[in-house]
Nucleic acid binder design. Structure first.
Lengths: 223, 223, 223, 223
DNA sequence: AATGAATGAGCCTTCATTCAT
DNA sequence: GATGAATGAAGGCTCATTCAT
């Protein structure tokens, strides 16, 4: 076992590996994969430039490790179902979904990292995106689709369901992707604490209003 | 020794300047400001590496010039009101707004460039963003706010209006910002021709359903 | 034409390109491809580190250029036939071949570079070796084979001819490949001027003595 | 805090030291001193990266140790006299010398390592070369000189003897030093088993033919 | 008006080596 | 007796930029 990054457990590594993951999470989340430099990460981690190579192999492998680790942390801190039972009313489940999603993106601390990284990944995809979609994004999309499906009239076709799900998600991600513009347009907007809850409430209400009044599919006339 | 990029008219410039603008528009729109290289732009423009610095000063100034020029072209090709009279019903104006926005982002040709550049700018802001917000984005936001305002119950507060506008816009931009993910989740999705119109129709309907059923503000009980 | 190394003529390049070729020839010849550093080459050429990239693309392309250029120079300075007519007696042609080969390897100045580079290439082959064998080494081997063929008894089989050619060449190359050892064993040995001629004379005589007395192939008994 | 590599006996060392020597012999013999990496050696030895420095001090000291150890093994496996009595006819002793030399270079297994290392050392000399020449190469050269001396006419001068010896040795080493080129020129050539014996036979015959017909030194006419 | 040539800063990676355990 | 962790120097390469023409 010559290189430590061959060790999947990596439990017995020193603190440098953790520092590196931490620092890389911050830097990648701030400026994206390309713009992030190994030097900046190592400096923030208080480690040598060669530490990345030693612990992870190369920059991209470090990135993958950050993604996977942040995924675990984020879902542990803000679970998708937000503690709601599966048979809770769909309105409540939608509200919980939106709120947890916003918190994953905007809350401070390492738990918020994953949301930011995912958002970055959508913009500037890397080789890690495929894995992320498979393991992380698609399951979440299906969960949302189930909620939406319980809100629109029965019989609504699959394509509409997908588009409605995306209409919900888009409202959440918008504030992250377009934050620079939003901040300039409305400098008083904030994304934490009570303000974040209000935002979640708005998105939920907007979506509920739309979904509840979604036109029922044309039925074949019964004899 | 006057540098030509100090000359606002730039009337006596040869065709190289135009080629550069054209090529830069393409490259910036495709890969963003940072990932774009001066060499790639010059090569596509059939010009020398030094041409960018000669004509525009530096990479960022070229970017600003591209932004401004593309702005003119785009608004000429896809006017915000889409040719509708100001007194058209708000439903029609919303539909036109959404459709024109999507086309600005997804249609081919130089006219579509601006939408892509704006979208890129939201993600990866540069010094040009302030100017863009002031001249371009804010007016468009106000126009949308007017449409939304005509759809929700009278007396709806300003903050709600803003949030509703953003809920509309977010659904449009989502397909651009998250295209890599969307393409992986639903590979059969397309963003041109009839499919784009269907998408516009969905976003319009979803938004209309939400706005039309927006809860009226609680009124103080009249005696 | 963005990169100058796309220009096969490269005639209008500044002096830096020439300096680079010169310096690279020296360094590659001294320490081989791997051990040579771009920085060392540029320093010796009085150029910037990026000059190699600009003029040749990368280190390996520079190496190829050095190889090709030195090939022309060396064969011009010490032609394979050494000015002898094709119908000269094979003894004289062998003597000329050996002498020119030794001079290509050991003489000073840029003309000697090619021999050294070829010798290095044999030891530490790069991607350029295939081209070199095709264009340079095989023709020379065939020329030697023709000389050898005229010296051994007629009817000598092809395999023996090849081995005899290699026995001749090996004696020449030995002094280059094993120079560090030879110099330690016999410190008074020199490889220039009259001493080089004596060495050529020895190799020629040794080879002639062997070839002239090469056993004739067994003939089928005539009836 | 005595470093173990200061301990000449190294009796109390575990098996790691042996593994290291074994692995280093393989790697150095394959790619040479410079191109060999400590990591590759340690990995092949199943040891830690630091093992080389711990057991031998540094990379070069390991190399020296490999050289010395392989020397013992090689000479035991392929003795210079090949088991021939000192009073055997010189033709037989030359044949044995050539054959054993070729086998030391080309045969598989650890016994062949030394030949390869010596050949590498000639090309890319290290600090270990002086020791090697003194202890290993010079004695072998003298033995060959004795054989050659018994084949050429009596009274042949010292310089000619030396050159003839080198003509013999060069033919052997050639196939190692120029293997990349030889393999490209004649892809069907092989260097093991019967083919190796044939090659030894060729070199012996070529050399014998040359030496037996070496011109006698001009004698002063006797009255 | 424009360009070929050249530059220097910075990037990711690799390597032999050392330190603390 | 041995190792995992960490380091600093160096390597090849890329990029936006500048200079002389």
């Amino acid at each position: 076992m010559v290189e430590p990054f061959n060790n999947p457990a990596a439990a017995e590594s020193g603190p440098t590996r953790e520092h590196l993951l931490e620092a890389a999470g911050e830097v990648f989340g701030e400026v994206g994969f390309r713009a992030a430099t190994v030097r900046a990460i190592c400096q923030r981690a208080g480690a040598n430039v060669a530490a990345v190579n030693y612990h992870f192999g190369d920059k991209e492998a470090l990135y993958s490790a950050v993604l996977q680790q942040s995924c675990r942390v984020a879902l542990a801190a803000y679970p998708v179902d937000a503690g709601l039972p599966a048979d809770a009313p769909p309105e409540a489940r939608l509200r919980a979904f939106v709120r947890a999603f916003l918190q994953r993106i905007f809350s401070d601390g390492p738990a918020a990292r994953h949301g930011r990284l995912m958002a970055q990944e959508m913009i500037e995809p890397t080789a890690a995106l495929d894995h992320l979609v498979r393991e992380d994004i698609r399951p979440m999309a299906q969960r949302l689709a189930a909620i939406v499906s319980a809100l629109v009239p029965p019989g609504t076709d699959e394509a509409s369901l997908r588009r409605c799900s995306m209409s919900v998600v888009s409202q959440i991600l918008f504030y992250h992707h377009c934050r620079p513009v939003v901040s300039r347009l409305f400098p008083d907007l904030e994304f934490h604490g009570e303000k974040l809850d209000q935002l979640a409430e708005h998105i939920t209400r907007f979506s509920l209003a739309a979904l509840r009044h979604w036109p029922a599919p044309a039925e074949p006339p019964a004899a």
